[in-house]
Structures are given as structure tokens and as C-alpha cells.
Simulated assay, not measured.
Amino acid sequence: MCRWIAYSGSPVNLEDLLYKPERSLVMQSKYSRLGVETINGDGFGVGWYSTVPRPGLFHSTDPAWNDRNLRELAALAWSGRVFAHIRASTGTAVQQTNCHPFRHDRWLWMHNGLINDFLKLKRDLTLAVDPALFPLIQGSTDSELFFYLALTLGLEKDPPGAVARAVGLIENIGRQHGVEFPLQMTVAVTDGETTWAFRYSSEGRSRSLFRSTDISALRALHPTHELLQGLSGDARLVVSEPLGDLEGAWQEVPEASYLVVHGAQAEVAPFAPIPV
């Protein structure tokens, strides 16, 4: 599987975000505590927004812990919305076009999990993608195809509904092919202004997902913590696993739910597939 983080708030230095926390994402690429695999070394990606709506992307097939270019970029880049992902392949090739996050116009998408028996389902799922979107698929992963199914089913107008419809479609096609539990997912998606994060699996045993608690309250609890003092009160993190053991810093996102983060507001709602 994989590990990812989604940050929004005041502009943060990418080195501070990706390298400096006690259990940073780069450290998790080598020593994940809550992932299916300890090592997530099959490439990585970072997506960030600056002064234009379309986000930048940096992908590499190197392990995140061993990429000098990531360190150079991170030291000199700041952003108020960052998606970062470390990959452990579930069977598709290790190549840049298979690294998350995936981008379409102003949208970013990243996924931890898999479509079970993907090769059985791939043809039927691919044929469900809008023909106008199909030529834009660059890689071979189930995660990117999942993104384009959500785009086909209305992601740009209704992200929660589109993801629910895409999940419903994947489960329906999976069960037609005899796959008992077609989907395992935590997903993050953003348009650059709002982030939606989903936790769901067909078997009801989803991969881990956490959100940060109120930064202002954390500052009061931990007045000497350097990273906390540099963040704005509306800073929010959604992560596959906590970036440290700081008391009171993290809340688990419930099973079969999704989180909406917009500015300082972070709301959780139930999630269920919509049959298609």
C-alpha cells in the first residue's frame, strides 16, 4: 500500500512538512508503523499550489528517503496546500506516470489501497471512463483509473457524490466478476481550495487515516514545539499515519466516513457507495 499527507493552511516550507516531523512522511517511506508494508520505496510524488490555479507536480521513481532532488526542491518551496504520497506498488509498474498525486486541470488526487483483482476488472472499468477523458490517462494504476471514473461521474461538481458513485461502480463490476471485496481505499482529493478525504473499504476494515486537531489548542499544550508555532490557526493535516507522538495532536477519521477541510473548518460525514 502507500502513505500520504494532505496539508492546508498558511504557506509552509516543504522541507519542514516532509522531513522535520518526528515521524515524517520521508521517514515513513522507510519505516512505516501502520501501513501494510513497512517500506514504501516504489517512488513518490508531491503536488502543491502557488499563484496559479493549476498545481505543480514532482514525481520520482526513487525512494523518497534517497532522492536528492526532493530535498533540494523541498528546502526552497513554500505552499499553503500540499499533497504528498509515498508508494508501495500493488502490482503495477514502478514508473513516474504511476506515482501519485494525479492531476487533472486544478484537481489533485491520491489513493492508498487497491482495487482487488484489478486485472480482472480493468477492461470493464476502463470502458466506463468518459471517452473525452480517456486519452488523458497516462499510467497503468488502479488509482489513476479510479480518479478518472470519479471525474467521469461528476467530481468537479460534487466530489463526495462522485466518489460514492465511482465506489459503487467499482463494487458492482467487481462483484459481477466474483470479487467479494472489490475496493480498499483512503483517498484525498482537492481543487486547491477545499480538500476531501475518504476512508472506506468493501470489507469494512479500511487502512488508517488521521486528521490533526486544532492547531491553536495544540500550541497551548506544547508551547515549545517549533513546527506548531510556525503554523496558522487554520492549518490542517490529513495523514495516513501520525507524523509524531505529540499528545492530543491526532484524531482518527472513522471507518466509512469522509472529511471536508475548508479553511479552519473540518467536518466529518458518513460515506457510503452509490449504486451506478
Rank of each mutant, 00 (worst) to 15 (best):
R3Q: 03
R3Y: 02
V12C: 08
V12A: 00
L14M: 07
D16C: 04
L17E: 01
R23K: 12
R23I: 10
L25V: 11
L25P: 14
V26I: 15
S32D: 14
G35P: 00
G35T: 06
D42Y: 02
W48A: 00
W48D: 02
Y49D: 01
G56V: 03
T61A: 10
T61F: 00
P63H: 01
A64Q: 07
D67P: 14
N69E: 15
N69M: 15
L70R: 04
L70P: 13
A77L: 15
T90Y: 11
T92Y: 07
A93K: 05
A93L: 06
T97V: 12
P101F: 01
F102K: 08
D105R: 14
R106F: 00
W109A: 06
W109D: 03
M110H: 02
H111A: 05
N112H: 09
L114W: 06
I115E: 09
N116W: 02
L119A: 09
K120F: 03
K122P: 15
L125S: 11
T126S: 12
L127G: 06
D130M: 02
L133G: 12
F134M: 13
L136I: 05
L136E: 04
I137W: 04
Q138R: 12
T141Q: 05
D142L: 09
D142G: 07
Y148E: 11
L149H: 08
G154C: 01
K157H: 12
D158R: 02
G168R: 14
G168V: 13
G168F: 03
E171C: 03
I173W: 09
R175T: 00
F181R: 00
L183T: 03
V189T: 15
V189Q: 09
T195R: 06
F198C: 05
S201Y: 04
S202R: 07
R207Q: 12
R207S: 14
S208L: 05
L209K: 02
I215N: 03
A217P: 11
H225M: 04
L228C: 08
Q229N: 12
S232R: 04
G233H: 14
A235F: 05
L237R: 12
L237C: 02
L237M: 14
V238N: 03
V239W: 07
G248N: 13
G248S: 13
G248F: 08
E252H: 08
V253A: 00
E255Q: 10
E255S: 08
Y258V: 00
V260P: 07
V261M: 10
H262W: 04
G263H: 07
G263P: 11
A264H: 10
A264N: 10
Q265K: 07
P270N: 08
P275C: 05
